[in-house]
Amino acid sequence: MFYPNSPQTSPQLTQIPYGQQYAMMQRQIQQPYHPFATTEPQARLYPYHYQGPIQQEQGGFITQQSTAASPQYVQMRVTPVDQSIMSGYPNQTANGSSSSSFNYNIHPQQQQQQQQQQQQLRHHAMPVGSVPLQDDRYRKQLIVNYLAPDVTSTDLHELFSRFGELDGARIIYDKQTNMSKGYGFVYFCHAEDAKEAVERMSGYEFHGKWLKVGYSTNPLNIVPSNSSPYVHAGSRGAAG
């Protein structure tokens, strides 16, 4: 039997160049792979992502010199942007860049009308829970959420009447099932009393439920100042 490094198959040491006398086997001759043993700084910083320098080929596509990437890492192929796409944008300079302001050559009167329309939209648009300043009635009506099913309009009136005089209180019921929808409205005579009720009743436990109280901004629920107070009856038909 002959071994790869046996004296019968191995040459004389004098015939082997210096430095390879003890590297006779194939696994010894093959050098191990060192990912950080390279002179390129990109490979030292990113050993798993770097795959060699990027070269520009004919046709405008950018390719990489090395083989496919590892399945664990996804390499994105980048193509140059066609400058003709950006030619339609206004205020574009000769080098292809555009300024931040756009001039669509709008007539001054049209621009003024658009600004007025935007101001009107901001004036009428009102986020949930906010209180408008032009109508004091919005500051007097509250919406009470997360009410228990057994709470009546009379219970709601008695709960909030300790903060001040009320114009009314009612629970909203479903017309088909005649069941409470879980929320109601309270109408105060003074805005200061309503503000105190919002601050003190939010998070209050009532009939096993934690109440959420806020201003009601729905104009359909506003009680006119010259109208008669609501009837605080315990029956659902009268309260709904």
Results as ranks from 00 to 15, higher is better:
Pro4Glu: 06
Pro4Val: 03
Pro7Ile: 06
Thr9Glu: 10
Thr9Pro: 06
Leu13Pro: 14
Pro17Asn: 08
Tyr18Val: 07
Gly19Cys: 04
Gln20Asn: 14
Tyr22Thr: 13
Ala23Leu: 03
Met24Gly: 10
Met25Gln: 09
Met25Ile: 10
Arg27Phe: 00
Arg27Asn: 03
Gln28Phe: 03
Ile29Lys: 13
Gln31Asp: 08
Ala37Phe: 06
Ala37His: 15
Thr38His: 11
Thr38Leu: 06
Thr38Pro: 14
Thr39Gly: 14
Thr39Pro: 11
Thr39Ile: 05
Gln42Gly: 13
Arg44Ser: 04
Tyr46Ala: 13
Tyr48Glu: 11
Tyr48Lys: 15
His49Arg: 15
Pro53Glu: 11
Gln56Leu: 04
Glu57Trp: 11
Gly60Thr: 09
Phe61Arg: 15
Ile62Val: 12
Gln64Gly: 08
Gln64Arg: 13
Gln65Gly: 08
Ser66Lys: 15
Thr67Gly: 13
Thr67Cys: 10
Ala68Gly: 05
Ser70Leu: 03
Val74Glu: 13
Met76Lys: 15
Arg77Trp: 00
Thr79Tyr: 03
Gln83Glu: 06
Gln83Met: 04
Ser84Arg: 11
Met86Cys: 05
Met86Ser: 07
Tyr89Leu: 07
Pro90Val: 08
Gln92Ile: 06
Thr93Ser: 09
Gly96Pro: 08
Ser98Trp: 14
Ser101Gln: 07
Ser101Arg: 12
Tyr104Ser: 04
Ile106Tyr: 11
Pro108Leu: 08
Gln110Ile: 10
Gln110Ser: 10
Gln111Gly: 09
Gln116Arg: 10
Gln119Ile: 07
Gln119Arg: 13
Leu121Ala: 06
Arg122Lys: 09
His124Asn: 12
Ala125Gly: 07
Pro127Ala: 06
Pro127His: 14
Val128Gly: 09
Ser130Phe: 10
Val131Leu: 11
Val131Tyr: 15
Pro132Asp: 12
Pro132Ser: 08
Gln134Arg: 14
Asp135Lys: 04
Asp136Leu: 08
Arg137Asn: 03
Lys140Met: 03
Asn145Ser: 02
Asn145Glu: 01
Tyr146Lys: 02
Pro149Glu: 02
Asp150His: 13
Ser153Trp: 15
Ser153Cys: 04
Thr154Gly: 06
Thr154Ile: 04
Asp155Ile: 12
Leu156Ile: 12
His157Ala: 06
Phe160Thr: 00
Phe163Asn: 02
Phe163Arg: 00
Gly164Ala: 01
Glu165Ser: 14
Glu165Trp: 15
Asp167His: 04
Ala169Trp: 03
Arg170Ile: 00
Ile171Lys: 02
Ile171Ser: 01
Tyr173Ile: 04
Thr177Asp: 03
Thr177Asn: 05
Thr177Cys: 06
Asn178Ile: 14
Asn178Gln: 02
Asn178Asp: 07
Met179His: 12
Lys181Ile: 02
Lys181Ser: 02
Lys181Cys: 02
Gly182Asn: 01
Gly182Arg: 04
Gly184Arg: 01
Tyr187Leu: 00
Phe188Met: 08
Cys189Thr: 14
His190Val: 07
His190Gly: 05
Glu192Cys: 13
Asp193Asn: 11
Ala194Leu: 00
Ala194Thr: 08
Ala194Asp: 00
Glu196Gly: 14
Glu196Ser: 08
Gly203Tyr: 10
Gly203Pro: 02
Gly203Ala: 02
Lys209Tyr: 03
Leu211Thr: 01
Leu211Asp: 01
Lys212His: 11
Val213Tyr: 00
Tyr215Glu: 00
Thr217Gly: 01
Asn218Arg: 03
Asn218Ile: 00
Pro219Gln: 06
Pro219Lys: 00
Leu220His: 02
Asn221His: 13
Asn221Glu: 06
Val223Ser: 03
Pro224Asp: 02
Ser228Lys: 14
Pro229Phe: 12
Tyr230Phe: 12
His232Val: 06
Ala233Gly: 08
Ser235Cys: 14
Ala239Gly: 05
Gly240Pro: 05
Gly240Leu: 06
Gly240Lys: 05
